[in-house]
Amino acid sequence: MFTFLQSIILGLVQGLTEFIPVSSSGHLVLTQVLMAGASDHYFIAFLDLGTTLVLIIYFRKKIYEILHNIFIDRNIRLARNILLTAIPAGIVGYLLSDFINTSWFFGSVVVVAIGLIVVGTIMIILERLPKASHVKNGEALPAKRALVVGIVQVLALIPGVSRSGSTIIAGRLAGLSAKEAAEYSFLAALPIMLGVALKLFAGSTERAYLMTNLSTVVVSNIFAFIAGMIAVTFMLNYLKRHSLAVFGWYRVALGVIVLTTFLLVQ
């Protein structure tokens, strides 16, 4: 059970890190361990509600455009690509949910640190890696490349990897610009986040947890929503002119600090 102050802190961490490729789950695990000595995967799961609402509101015009394309123009390319990218992580996450939520895996600071360092290193050298031919946007992305981005997104189930980080990297290698890769990453995350939300409300254990912790969950999601709106706006504007390298250096530095601290206290 978290206090209101702790809930606000966790909400801010979720909102700021969900759309910046530094791993929201990793930061939430580290923050919970620092504040309470252990992580609570149910609380982390419910924090996705506020940031899911961010995507719905921020991309409301794009969502309307996608629906218009499907039902009026009979153009399903972008919707098809989004589904192809979302399906692999959705299936694997559903099938392995019990394993993923184990404390020794999801709550492990060592797993988080390794994820931060590995993906951070890739971000630093990303611009030097070979990329596929340039693609204008997510709609123009070939179906095979969209599926590959989705397969890479499966790695984001590992705490410390980052859902946005993995898909933005894969999108860049698939030929998208940094800004277009980020926008596509956020749109492709929406079906998964909506699926997670439905699963939360469908499970009796999850509903019981929500009722027990309703006030702190609501407070944390309010702050996650506010911080998330700021973060997604910042990220899309930042990537118009910059690469992911600065986030890579941050991830590597944080991962090294966490891993070193863990080894010293053992």
Rank of each mutant, 00 (worst) to 15 (best):
G165R: 01
G203I: 08
A208D: 02
F247A: 12
K144S: 15
T212Q: 12
S166H: 07
T167F: 03
K131V: 11
R251P: 00
L176V: 01
A224L: 03
S166T: 14
K136V: 15
E206F: 08
F225K: 08
A227P: 01
V149Y: 02
R145L: 14
P191K: 02
I124F: 07
Y209H: 12
I125M: 05
A197F: 03
M211Q: 12
G120H: 03
Q153F: 11
G160W: 02
L126H: 07
Q153G: 06
V148Y: 02
P191E: 00
V217A: 11
I222T: 14
R128Q: 08
I222E: 04
E206Q: 15
V218P: 02
L210S: 10
N221L: 11
V246F: 02
K144E: 10
I122E: 05
E206G: 09
V152P: 02
N221M: 06
A224W: 01
I124T: 09
E206I: 05
A197K: 00
V154M: 09
K240N: 12
A143Y: 14
I122Y: 11
I117C: 12
W249S: 07
S177C: 04
H134I: 06
Y250I: 09
I222P: 01
V118M: 05
F223R: 05
N221E: 06
A231I: 09
S162F: 03
L210V: 05
M235R: 10
A182R: 01
S166F: 10
T233P: 09
N213R: 14
R207H: 07
F234E: 06
L214C: 09
F225A: 13
A208H: 04
Q153Y: 05
T212C: 10
L190F: 08
R163H: 09
S133H: 09
P191A: 01
I168V: 12
L126P: 04
